[in-house]
Design a protein around this nucleic acid. Structure first.
Length: 456
RNA sequence: GUGGUUGUAGCUCAGUUGGUUAGAGCGCCUGAUUGUGGUUCAGGAGGUCGUCGGUUCGAGACCGAUCUUCCACCCCA
């Protein structure tokens, strides 16, 4: 046991059946992305540390996997720094590269670096793994895939409308019903902070607010108090907890609440626009909902914020998220380039589909027909037929060894191969094949064209 | 990063207050069956009990460390 090899915490191997299912999800998402006019790019799995560090907050920095420099890197550290044993100070000296933490920041870097070759607005999609030095939990890994679609170079709210449609399209294709697209707007949150006079505590305030459905109103106010938000501000927040009802009712309530804040009103108007258009365009399976407590998201969101909740019967964190970031490329020196995008969490969608048994049966299909190996002459005869079948698009294989029938049949059985061909001397003499249906157990004698017809 | 939890055969798990040679089901291999799998029957292989250290006459069981699993925080897809 001890000598058995293993893989690092939070990583996984994928068996054939799992890869087939993952590909099904990926192909579905990719199909929708291209259908909506997005173009694929890829970026390196690791970036220069300075590209990533400081972009996700202190918590994010902690979760970034750092790559040790090559060579005798400790020799270059001066003694006084080494003696301090301060990891935070030491890290930049011994690590200059890091594994990417998400796909959005590398994308921003890409846009800035390639700005002269890009035609704006630029719609790109990207499906690649990301890494986080997190503690694993259910649906939480240290290596996982994100599937991102972003548009940069347009401030049009029609993009947000299209992203809502895109979410709906993907989940409809996957036949995943009961998905809720939660939407909020950073400007609404800023407006609330402004109205209650806690602008300087925006982050603390939003993080606490985000936990409303988890720890309740009392828990949220308690956390806000602990973070130093004044009692007066918390009292003024009161009406917010009772924002409920339909989208238009929520919007009306927010307008009332935020009347004195121009930024807040702007956020409400943006939410209203998107809701209104979606009401006309209609969604197929997903539900769009305004959630004023939705505050997750990285520090760079400036407008819309999206988060996708799995159907309520599945206990799973969000399966997607996104939003508008007006100044993402600004940190890399390219100003006035607004972006908006969404992300799908492939690994979590997989767990949800698995739990709800929503993978189509056909995705598990393997080889269509196995040819039994009876010996050299027979194998050659079989391979000639196999070549013909393959040219017809039928996946076929020859059992490589001249093993006992039982073993060869057992192989077909275990791999769920639906058909087996037996071709020995008597079949060869008549240019025929014995085709056995493994499920029914019956078998027929056929020629080549009949064989193709039966297997197609 | 904090707190808890888990680890015994390929898989799922039993294993009494610490006591002889650690078990079961499923799976695997061989045969009954030299051109017929999935059913049945007979036989067989497979474990330094996660790892390292400690307590003890004696440890799968108790203690410590470490790794891993899952869970709650933090945060997030």
């Amino acid at each position: 046991m001890s000598k058995k090899p293993s893989i690092p915490k939070g990583t996984r191997d994928f068996s054939p059946t799992e890869v087939v299912k993952r590909n099904y999800i990926m192909d579905t998402i990719r199909g929708c992305f291209t259908n909506y006019g997005f173009q694929p790019i890829e970026t390196p799995s690791f970036e220069n540390s300075e590209t990533l560090m400081g972009k996700y907050g202190d918590e994010g920095d902690r979760l970034i996997f750092k790559i040790l420099n090559s060579g005798d890197f400790l020799r270059k550290v001066d003694d006084s720094l080494y003696a301090e044993k301060d990891s935070l100070k030491m890290t930049p000296r011994i690590s200059e590269k890091a594994l990417r933490y998400d796909l959005t920041v590398p994308f921003a870097r890409y846009v800035v670096q390639h700005q002269n070759e890009i035609t704006f607005p630029f719609k790109r999609y990207q499906i690649q793994p990301v890494w986080r030095a997190d503690r694993p939990q259910k649906g939480r890994f240290r290596e996982f895939y994100q599937c991102d679609a972003d548009v940069v170079g347009s401030t049009s709210l029609w993009q947000e409308v299209e992203f809502v449609q895109l979410y709906d399209a993907v989940f409809s294709k996957l036949d995943l019903k009961g998905v809720t697209i939660k939407m909020n707007n950073r400007k609404v949150l800023s407006g609330i902070a402004e109205v209650i006079g806690a602008e300087d505590k925006l982050i603390d305030f939003t993080v606490a607010l985000d936990k409303l459905d988890k720890i309740g109103e009392a828990g949220v106010t308690k956390e806000m108090r602990e973070k130093g938000i004044s009692e007066e501000a918390i009292n003024r927040l009161q009406p917010l907890f009772s924002v409920s009802g339909s989208a238009s009712e929520k919007l009306a309530k927010l307008r009332e609440l935020l009347a004195s804040s121009s930024i807040g009103m702007q956020g409400v108007d943006e939410l209203g626009f998107i809701i209104e258009q979606i009401q006309t365009l209609q969604l197929k399976t997903a539900t769009l909902e305004i959630d004023v407590t939705l505050a997750r998201g990285l520090n760079y969101y400036t407008g819309a914020i999206f988060e996708v909740a799995a159907p309520s019967e599945v206990k799973m964190g969000s399966i997607g998220g996104g939003g508008r970031y007006d100044d993402l490329t600004g940190i890399f020196g390219l100003k006035d380039m607004s972006g908006v995008g969404i992300s799908f969490g492939l690994d979590r969608i997989y767990l949800v589909l698995e739990e709800l048994d929503l993978f189509p049966k056909t995705v598990s299909a393997t080889t269509q027909v196995l040819f039994i190996n009876f010996g050299t002459k027979e194998a050659l005869y079989a391979l000639q037929a196999i070549a013909t079948l393959r040219a017809e698009g039928i996946s076929a294989e020859l059992y490589p060894d001249e093993a006992k029938m039982g073993k060869q049949m057992g192989y077909a059985d275990k791999r769920n191969i639906p058909f087996v061909v037996l071709a020995g001397e008597s079949e060869m003499n008549e240019q025929q094949f014995t085709l056995k249906n493994m499920k029914l157990g019956d078998q027929v004698r056929v020629n080549t064209s009949e064989l193709i017809a039966k297997l197609k």
